[in-house]
Design a protein around this nucleic acid. Structure first.
Lengths: 140, 140
DNA sequence: TGTTAATAGTTTGATATGAAACTCTATTGC
DNA sequence: GCAATAGAGTTTCATATCAAACTATTAACA
């Protein structure tokens, strides 16, 4: 029976991780943001400007959701939208100066989440875990 | 870097599992239900009547969310609410006949999800996976 | 080259979700 | 016994999310 509970466990972990991230962002003075917003900002920090479709592909949410999320980030001032000169259907989303300023906090928060969740988990166990999750992710 | 992506992977897997469950429920003629509703029904099938607070504890959602979810299940007719005679603060939620009739479909769907997601994963790997996820879940 | 199909985003409407304030009941401490 | 506190649910409000229909632009192809 026990090994049937992976999906259940995964749901719980995600829920708790989200709660953790929300709390930490708030503690760093980043308020009013959901984890999805953080995820978008994180990817922009790592990869530079991205089109809406690219963001959607990465965070795996409906494109209308991306529109809403990015609009909020624009409203707050963390992000700006530019027309792609080569293809005017495309909007490129880029961090503003205010958005870039969040990077140090984000790195700290990500590190803290990792430290918490992996407490007592060995390096090769993490490796195993990622490989198994990768396989399941590919199966679905 | 790769082993830092567990939370990311978990999010994707949960998203896909939810999509899978929604599709399967629809295919079985169970329409208009979100995975959370299915989760509640599944627990009622397994454990019998539960108080709202118990449901909340199991599926780890806010009590106001539980109220909304259960109300919908009542409206559709899968579930009914009874006062606990011993403690009138408590509402006991129980499956109706119509709700119980869903059980065979639910078992099939759960089995299909497991078969899909675990394709190519050995039994002892599943064991390992659950143990590691358990640890992370406890850490958070 | 002009029509059709594909792609990028947005809008609209519905729903799940959470937070905070509130009601009602039970329990606890004096 | 009675006041204060805790517990179970609900209501209200705000927001993330998805699906479907829509607009606008580019690509395909005949």
């Amino acid at each position: 029976m026990k090994k049937d509970h992976i999906i259940f466990l995964i749901g719980r972990i995600q829920y708790k991780a989200n709660r953790f991230l929300s709390q930490e962002m708030k503690a760093h003075g980043i308020k009013g943001l959901a984890p999805s917003h953080g995820e978008i900002l994180g990817y922009l920090m790592a990869r530079g400007p991205l089109p809406m479709s690219g963001i959607g592909r990465i965070i795996d949410k409906d494109k209308s959701t991306i529109t809403a999320l990015v609009n909020k980030l624009i409203r707050i001032g963390y992000v700006e939208k530019k027309r792609d000169p080569a293809d005017s259907r495309i909007s490129l989303i880029a961090l503003t100066r205010k958005g870039m300023a969040l990077k140090p906090s984000f790195l700290l928060i990500a590190q803290k989440l990792r430290a918490h969740s992996y407490k007592g988990v060995l390096d090769d166990e993490r490796e195993t875990l990622v490989n198994l999750l990768d396989k399941i992710n590919a199966n679905l």
